[in-house]
Design a protein around this nucleic acid. Structure first.
Length: 157
DNA sequence: GCCAACGTTGGC
DNA sequence: GCCAACGTTGGC
């Protein structure tokens, strides 16, 4: 089992949107970065745990935990000229871009804002907190995962 | 809205 | 293969 952090702008797709989705499942379309794609393709497995992070929010924050329920498959939004994620280089025959499905698991109450994360001992090396870090799908170490969970004790149920 | 950091594109 | 120009991300 691996741990991840996935970013979404709440204006585009929010934590509330995930909770309101059918089955509380969504496909994670729109990843258009090779490093993030490769992580999904090569390392992300069904059952993996995901921190759902709001970027471009006030404050940016970890909103809750989701899990991977379907491993990487072709992102068909890339085939659709009317989609904001259209990429003519990707075709059904040779898909370039991939997505996974994730499902709501539980809320983190209250959400853990970026300013709070920056104060937590032991998280200094977390990718999210590095200057210029933009990767929208990031691995999270088991140590960092545990530290962050401990910030909201009792959230396990 | 600003802008630093980063990734991609394309001319050469 | 280099690298300048450009577009995007995302915190502030």
């Amino acid at each position: 089992m691996q741990y991840w952090l996935m970013k979404s702008e709440p204006n585009t797709f929010s934590w509330a949107d995930l909770k309101a989705a059918p089955g509380q499942i969504t496909c994670w379309e729109g990843v258009r970065n090779y490093q993030a794609r490769n992580l999904m393709r090569d390392a992300m497995k069904q059952g993996d745990q995901v921190f759902f992070y709001h970027s471009n929010a006030n404050p940016p924050a970890i909103m809750g935990i989701a899990k991977v329920v379907r491993e990487a498959y072709a992102d068909h939004f890339a085939f659709d000229p009317s989609s904001r994620y259209y990429d003519p280089k990707s075709t059904p025959e040779k898909p370039i871009w991939l997505m996974v499905d994730i499902q709501y698991e539980r809320d983190i109450i209250p959400p853990i804002g970026l300013p709070e994360l920056r104060t937590v001992p032991g998280l200094e090396s977390m990718m999210l907190l590095q200057k210029g870090s933009r990767l929208s799908v990031q691995p999270v170490t088991p140590q960092a995962w545990e530290i962050i969970q401990q910030l909201r004790p009792g959230g396990q149920t």
